[in-house]
Structures are given as C-alpha cells and as structure tokens.
Design a protein around this nucleic acid. Structure first.
Length: 789
DNA sequence: GCCAACGTTGGC
DNA sequence: GCCAACGTTGGC
C-alpha cells in the first residue's frame, strides 16, 4: 500500500495528461493505435472492472465473540487478596475487555482468521455504541463468511511478470486493503452520526463511481452536495466541537488521545487526552476525568470475570491449579497466569506484587507485566483490529502470507497508534516518565549469555527501510523507479525533512498517515513540548485498487507539492477502501504563500458532516499540529497545505487566478491545486461525482486542458467549444466546471475478444472515445460503434 | 536514532 | 509444535 502511495508521490512534477502514464490497478491498456496523434495517447484506457467482476464480499467470521475470561485473570497476592491483572503475552484476538470486538476485518481471500471463539467465562459487556446496531450504516455487506475464514491463508498473488502491483490484474483486487468492518471504539454522538449521512463515503461507499450518474447532486436524500456547495472553500468542514474539546486540558469523553487542531502544540496538547499514569509514569489515554492510571496499571474490578480458578500457592511466586505447576523457563518471576483447562492445568501468575509485597523486584515485575502490552493501548482502533491487512510489509513478511517471517512484526494496521505516537515523542519525555512501550535496556542489566536480536553479520546494504517494501511491492522497474523518485521526495538524504508513513484506518477508510519530520530549522522543535516536527497527513488508502487516475493523481498533486514546491492548497480527500478514485471533498483552502511558513506542511483532516472550522488563523500558525482526530470516526478528508516556497514556479497570473478561486465557492468538490509547471489544476475530488476522474489543468496563459482518467479530452470535444480557449477568470472556470458536472464518463465497451473466457472481461474504449458524454448516456458514439463493429 | 533481523515468549 | 509478535540487538 505504501509503495503505491510512494509511486503516486514519486511523480516529480506535474505532467501533461498525455505524458502521464495510466496509473491504476483497474486499468487495462489496449494497444489501439490512436489516429489523432499527439493529442491522444496511443493507449485507450478502460474502465474499472464492473462490479460483477469484483471479488465477493470479504469474509468475516461471526465476530460475536467477546472477551475471554482468561484475559483477565485472578491475581493473588501474599495478602491473599485476589486481584485482577491483565494477562501477559500476545494479546489474544477478541479479548479486549473494554471494547469487545464487534467486527473484524478480513482481507479478501487473504485473511486467515484465527479462531477467536475460545471459550471464556467472562461475559463481554458490549458498549451499545459499539454494537453493529449502533452503526449508522449497514453492516450486511461486511459480514463475513465464517466458512471462508477458516481456510488456510492464501498466498498473496504476486504480480505477474512484467506487471507491477499497480498494474491491472484481477488478482490485484485481492490486494485491496480490507474494508473496515470494525466498529469504531469511539463513542458515537448521535448528532454526529447523523451527520455522517452527508458522507458519501459512508452512504455510497460501494457504489461504483462509474455507475452512479447523478442528475442532481443529492439523489440519496442527503443534502450533501448542496451543503458542500454552500460551504465555502475557505471554511473546511472541521469539527469545531473537537477543537473546543481540545481547547483546554480537560479530558472529556473520548476514549482516545485525540489530536488537536489547535495551533499551539505542547506535548499534552498534541495528545490532549493523555494523562500521566501515577503508577508507572507513562502517558496513557485517559478515558474520563479522574483516570490516573494507565490501562495496564488500572485495576479492572468492574471488568473482572467471576473467579473460576482455585489457586494454591506452591512456591514463592508459583500458584497452582490442579496437579502440575509449570515453571517458566527464562523468567521465573515473570509469570503469567495461563489458563489452559483442557489439557494443562498449569497456572502461571502474572504476578504483580502490591505495595506490601516483600519482593524487592517489584519494579521488574511491573515492567515485565506490562511488557507484552506495552505496544498496545488497547483502545485505539489499531489495537482493536483483529485481522491482518495482508498487504503491509509486515503482513507480507508473515509466513501465512507467503513471507519469510524475517520481520516478525504485527500488521501495521494493527500496531497501536498511540504507542506509535508516543514513540515519536520519546525524545520529549523525560527519563523516568517515558513511555513504557519503549523498552530500554538498563544500564546495569547484565548481558545475557545468548545474544538476542540481529546477529552480528554483514547485511546486504540497505539504503533505507523502504527498500524492503520496494522488493515487496514493486516488481518491475517502472514501479521501482517511481519508488526511487518517491524516496527522493520522501526522505531526503540531506535529512532536512523526512516522511514517515503509517497506516491508519477508521471506519471504511484506510489511510496512510504521512508524518513529516523536520530535522532542524524549526524553532518549535526547541520547545520539547512542541511536536512541531510531526505533521500528519492523512493521505490515502486504496493502495492496491488504485484507480486509473485521480486517486494517484490526487496524491501526486498533493504530496508532490511538499518537497518540491508547488502551492498545494485545498483539500483533497483521498479515497476510502472502496474502489473509487477519491474520497469526498468538502472544501478547499487556498492560502496565501507565506514565506514565514517556509518549509512547513500543514494538514488537516476534515470530516464530512462536521461543522466548519475557521481556518484563517490556524493557517498562520506554523505550530499547528494536525493529525488524525481519533476521537471521531469516519475521517474522510484531509487538508494538505504546503507552505514550501516555490519562487521558480510562480506565475503571477495563475497565482492570482488560484487565489481568486480559493476565495470563490467552486462547484461542489472541486478543488484548486497549484502545482509545478506552474499548473493550476482543478480536481473533482468527490468519488461519487461523475467527474471524479476529471482534472482541469490551467497553464500559463490560462490555456486549459481537461483530462479524464489521465487521458486528455480531445480538443474536438464539444466542451472546448462551449468555453473560451483561455480560462482567465473565476467565472469562466466555474462555468467550465459546471458544464463538466453535467457530463459523465464514457463507460466504454466490453471487449469480448480479449483474453481467455476465464479472464475478467474489461471495458475498453474506442480510440477516439469522447470520454465525457452526457450523463444520461453510457457510451460515446465511438464506443458504441466499436461494439457494433 | 532508526530499523531490519531474529531470539524468545506466550497462546493455542 | 506451531504461530504471533514482543523485545532486543547491531548495522547503518
């Protein structure tokens, strides 16, 4: 996934459509000689495979299992006071005590779901807000077939020779990131939930963009398009309520450490819901006022299962149930209650002495007890996720996905966001209060006889960590080249700016979270409490079912501006897990090029249906920390503001037009982007728009070009005749956009002569396809004739 | 400091 | 014994 992003980002600069090779997994090319010459590429792009070609809905097991009682174990201290302590060891699936699993994700045909229905005596206490019934959307489509999930995992179909993971093969569908099926652990605000109906990604997520033809924007009964239309670009729809919630340090209701949209960012403000554990000193996500201990240290009296084990002390730390006592091999004092009633009545205690315990190694025990849970906050959606994505590098490394198990790491989508976040702040946390998820060898720790970790051997040179992904995802040289180009942008050798990507998933959206780290030159970094070196961008998902154009293009447009220097302004939502090119755009934010903000990227993720926020001030604040607002579900839109200077690409006229467009209410979901060239691009970012794949590029001299799915609209197209040759004013631009909104994309025709009968039949287009046709038509005359011919 | 690699551990 | 993945190590 990341690599696909990389590839999308790797485009060094904006190119004209005819120069842009088709990008997308659902695109096939046909070597049809183009008779028009230069104005039309020699390849005809086809539409995405129709829905009937796509794989069946992914499987899902019952998903109804709840907390395992063994996860919460009865502790006994020397005082004979039973305590409840969370079990050590690898967290078992479906065992989260706070937020019982309600759904799970199974990568299509990839996810192997381990049995998670082990008997447990604890009765999960489902949060009503977490139950599927509370979901604002229908979960029927994401129910999984338990039969299928019991199958052994299938190997990831490697891209065929000569084809990259981006290329179009039916198998690439199987690479598609899993559609999120898990219920967000966040508390649903009813009003907010209702607002989600504005989100096309939610309501119409599975609707093929090509099959949706709207004669009016709000066919689904929501007022989304109108509302968005009325929402000026200067006011991105952003949860002001969230801002208010974070405006002070009062922990309100969210379960998650949210991110603040506020400008000033201190450590606590950047993680406004983090509190400091009184027990271990670690930062932890407070759930309510008064939470003083982290999840691991907090007693779980309310959650404990009824005791069903009789303990008998047989040693200093050994507690026995039944006949045998199995001592731990390596860590006699680091024992975990292990309930295996069926065959081994062995109990190992997760022994956490209380304050009166005479064990002089309390600290060790505490540390050990938390070891296994250090990496999990147990509350974020990543921790709650139970299935591997099957596509990240760690998943690919897994043997079940055909990997070599070198990395032995958890799926990226399942890696705790909080811990990841804290990890990024460890430098700002004073010693002694650092995050316990960050293991550190003690100075006085004796080296073990047998060294762990990587053996001291010469490794093959590895330029950077992404190289591994390179090997995984990019099977042809073109893609590798893309990746290399991305690397140049993404992680400069000079070290001034570095991009890090992590996966993020919320609701049906799976994102790549891009974090830019400034290695210097940031005065905000001098403040240890300011996390100015991290700026998050919710970039995109759908790395595998990337589409022909706009998804990648949108990515490119946005991200390329960061290291390169265009003026990337506006919100470009990048798609959700549905195979649509783009997500939903609610607004755009043109910003003046401010030299004082040189070098910063500012990004804000905006939710559809949320009240608008006011950007004017925030945009001026270079310390604004923006990232995923975990406290609310359904992130759909991001704002990416590049403040990088770009004098070379400055074109006064285009900039003026760009600025004017930013001050104008453009037709819904159209976003202006200034890119290198300079080229002013107008993107239709709504995936449900018939113009989802359409880009209008205005170059110097205001000449413009329309491209659809990376193919230029032929100059003979009637659209050009209806508008002036140059779009010099906002009115002309808007007029064009409105005109385009009345059009749809030609669906092409199915070529029944292609491939074997077993292969999916792809739609292709005639060489001179009109691309844009009236909405009520499916094919342009050329494609119609091609069928008849 | 990051991270690939891998020993190791817990769950099953 | 297998699997998942945590924690550690050392190369870079």
């Amino acid at each position: 996934m990341t690599d696909e992003l990389n590839g999308a980002l790797a485009e060094p600069q904006m190119t004209k459509p005819e120069e842009t090779p088709p990008i997308g997994a659902d695109v096939v090319t046909d070597d049809v000689v183009n008779a028009v010459g230069n104005s039309v590429p020699g390849k005809v792009m086809s539409e995405s495979p129709p829905d009937w070609l796509k794989p069946m809905e992914e499987d899902e097991d019952d998903g109804g299992d709840g907390v395992k009682s063994s996860e919460w174990i009865i502790m006994k201290t020397n005082d004979d006071v039973p305590k409840v302590k969370r079990g050590r060891g690898r967290p078992r699936k479906g065992s989260h005590p706070v937020c019982p699993k309600t759904e799970r994700i199974v990568p299509p045909l990839l996810g192997r779901t381990r049995s998670s229905n082990a008997s447990g005596t604890a009765i999960p206490v489902p949060d009503p807000a977490h139950t599927p019934e509370a979901l604002p959307r229908n979960l029927q489509s994401i129910n999984h077939n338990p039969i299928s999930t019991s199958e052994k995992p299938r190997l990831i179909p490697i891209s065929p020779a000569g084809g990259s993971s981006l290329s179009t093969t039916p198998n690439t569908e199987f690479h598609s990131p899993p559609r999120l099926t898990r219920v967000t652990p966040l508390s649903f605000d009813t009003s907010v939930t209702q607002n989600f109906v504005h989100t096309p990604a939610v309501k119409l997520g599975n609707v093929s963009r090509q099959s949706v033809s709207f004669t009016e924007p709000a066919r689904d009964g929501t007022e989304l398009p109108l509302q968005l239309w009325l929402c000026p670009p200067m006011e991105p729809i952003s949860p002001t309520k969230t801002q208010d919630m974070f405006s002070d340090q009062i922990v309100s209701s969210a379960n998650f450490p949210g991110t603040t949209l506020n400008g000033s960012v201190t450590l606590k403000e950047s993680l406004p819901l983090l509190s400091e554990c009184e027990s271990c000193g670690c930062a932890f996500p407070a759930q309510k006022i008064g939470d003083v201990m982290c999840y691991g240290c907090r007693p779980k009296y309310k959650k404990q299962s009824p005791p069903n084990i009789v303990f008998r002390k047989v040693g200093q730390d050994q507690w026995e149930v039944g006949k045998t006592t199995k001592k731990t091999k390596k860590h006699p004092r680091k024992q975990v209650l292990k309930q295996r009633p069926e065959h081994k009545k062995t109990v190992k205690m997760d022994f956490v002495p209380d304050g009166d315990d005479d064990d002089d190694d309390d600290d060790d025990d505490d540390e050990v007890v938390k070891k296994r849970s250090r990496r999990m906050c147990q509350q974020c959606d990543a921790c709650l996720r139970e299935d591997d994505c099957g596509t990240c590098d760690f998943c690919v490394d897994k043997p079940k996905f055909g990997g070599s198990n070198k990395k032995k790491q958890k799926c990226r989508l399942r890696q705790c966001k909080l811990q990841s976040r804290l990890h990024g702040q460890k430098g700002n946390i004073v010693e002694g209060k650092r995050n316990p998820s960050l293991p550190r060898r003690r100075r006085d720790e004796k080296p073990k006889l047998k060294r762990r970790g990587r053996p001291s051997k010469k490794q093959k040179p590895r330029s950077n960590p992404w190289e591994d992904d390179d090997e995984v995802y990019y099977k042809d040289e073109d893609d590798k080249e893309d990746l290399r180009r991305y690397k140049m942008n993404g992680r400069r050798k000079g070290g001034k700016r570095k991009w890090k990507y992590s996966f993020k998933e919320e609701e049906e959206d799976v994102f790549i979270e891009a974090v830019i780290e400034e290695d210097g030159a940031s005065n905000t970094e001098e403040n240890p409490d300011i996390l100015a070196n991290q700026r998050s961008a919710m970039v995109s998902n759908e790395m595998h079912s990337n589409t022909s154009g706009l998804s990648a293009q949108g990515l490119y447009y946005n991200m390329s501006g960061v290291p390169a220097a265009p003026y990337v302004l506006g919100s470009v939502p990048l798609c959700n897990s549905n195979p649509a090119p783009m997500g939903q755009v609610t607004s755009s934010l043109p910003m003046a090029d401010d030299g004082t903000q040189n070098g910063f990227l500012q990004i804000e993720m905006v939710r559809v249906g949320s009240p608008p926020s006011h950007y004017t001030e925030a945009a001026q604040d270079t310390e604004q920390h923006v990232s995923e607002p975990l406290q609310e579900p359904t992130p759909v839109i991001t704002h990416i503001f590049s403040l990088v200077g770009g004098e070379n690409d400055r074109d006064q006229g285009l900039m003026e037009l760009f600025t004017s467009l930013g001050q104008t209410v453009l037709p819904a979901h159209w976003v202006g982007v200034m890119s290198k060239g300079p080229i002013l691009q107008l993107l239709q970012c709504s995936k449900i728009s018939s113009m989802a794949d359409t880009v209008v590029q205005i170059e110097k001299g205001y000449f413009y070009q329309v491209s659809v799915q990376n193919q230029p609209l032929l100059l003979m197209h009637a659209v050009y005749s209806r508008h002036p040759t140059c779009l010099e004013s906002v009115d002309e631009v808007v007029s064009l956009l409105l005109d385009l909104e009345g059009l749809g994309v030609c669906q092409g025709y199915q070529n029944f002569h292609m491939g074997s009968p077993r292969e999916p039949r792809m739609s292709v287009r005639a060489a001179l396809c009109d691309l844009l046709i009236p909405k009520d038509e499916e094919q342009c005359p050329k494609c119609t004739h091609a069928v008849e011919g």
